[in-house]
Design a protein around this nucleic acid. Structure first.
Lengths: 200, 200
DNA sequence: CCTTAAAAACGAATGCTGTTAGTTTTACTG
DNA sequence: CAGTAAAACTAACAGCATTCGTTTTTAAGG
């Protein structure tokens, strides 16, 4: 029984690969152990439990998703940045459906590791929204709106729930993002007017 | 072993109750059998498999959700109907989180029973959107937008993903629905103008 | 180079899980 | 009352996550 040179990072990485290949639903410690040429019990030297492992996978997926978002927005501002962010989000969810599924699958209530990543999820979005001239509170509300639209669309699309009608889904998504962009533009104008202390 | 008078409907109903109580994640055939005072294998006289059972639970949950939507919209049109629908949707997702979870959990690809319910989900939404003066294609796109917003918000809220900031979630939701309402209003106006064959 | 101790793999076992097959009991129909 | 179909049963299987105690391997210190 030669050592496999495993550590937590390698196990999480292998789990992510396996999930991406075979799907989150059929993931098991036994299957992962088989792939790593190790007995299932050996995995517990590197990981506290299956839930803990999936937590790590979710964190990894969040990292990649947010990086894709940041790269897409690089050098852009305003609506261009908004559309780039939204496109990157949907692209990731479609390119890595099972990994994206893992992100939303693990509840965030009281999991320290994921609680920390919450900031990573929010940050690129808040940076994009910063270009619309809203105050902090409004930005936080709109951040929720945008995340709702992006995840809601991705989830429905993945579940096959948008196949009832033949209309092009790309166009539906653009329409949704345009809708948010319009709302943001108007909110920004309004916020700017209200901010004037001495209107002409 | 006296007969329990079980049938598919009773089993599905009991499964829904159990899921609502203990959560979808911890649901099991053994647990359901225990509640029904029956051996696990006996359930297979009424249900093809656990997946088939969960499919039935999802169908049941869809029925209740759409009924809540219809009741909320009764007698309303336009934006009033839109807000009522959106409120009813979120209310149901919060009042029956585990049942709502079951709806989105089962993939819809090639499941006849749920494919049939897809129409039930879409219908009340399309009726509400009918009041905005869009053509059929636009209505189908906006239906996807609205469903994305509603589910995306419900899913994030349920996962605890909107707790990062203290801002009131009710207000975020109203903002999101207002955003869709504004988009719909403008799309309706535009559609009406385009429809004129002889503009003044 | 040898010793020591920690880390990592292991085998075995526990109590779950969904599901199938074959058998027995129940309830209805002629 | 006899026969039949449905519904319950028992037993079994393979797989699951996880824990315990043991054995092996590696790395560090003297």
């Amino acid at each position: 029984m030669p050592r496999q040179g495993l550590n937590r990072e390698a196990v999480v990485q292998a789990a992510a690969d396996l999930i991406e290949e075979k799907g989150l639903a059929s993931f098991s410690m036994g299957g992962l152990a088989r792939r790593l040429a190790v007995r299932p019990s050996s995995l517990y030297n590197h990981v506290q439990s299956m839930d803990g492992l999936l937590e790590g996978v979710a964190a990894l997926a969040i990292d990649r998703l947010t990086q894709a978002e940041r790269e897409a927005c690089e050098g852009k501002t305003g609506e261009a940045a908004l559309f780039a962010l939204a496109e990157a989000y949907r692209w990731y969810a479609r390119a890595h459906p099972e990994l994206y599924r893992a992100v939303m699958h693990v509840g965030r209530w009281g999991r320290p590791e994921l609680e920390a990543r919450a900031g990573d999820i929010v940050r690129p979005i808040m940076e994009v929204l910063a270009g619309f001239g809203l105050d902090e509170t409004e930005q936080r509300h709109w951040q929720r709106v945008l995340r709702s639209v992006m995840h809601g669309f991705a989830a429905h699309e993945q579940a096959g729930a948008f196949s009832h009608f033949p209309e092009d889904r790309d166009e539906s998504y653009r329409l949704a993002v345009r809708c948010v962009a319009g709302g943001l533009r108007r909110a920004g104008r309004k916020s700017h007017e209200d901010g004037r202390t001495d209107p002409v």
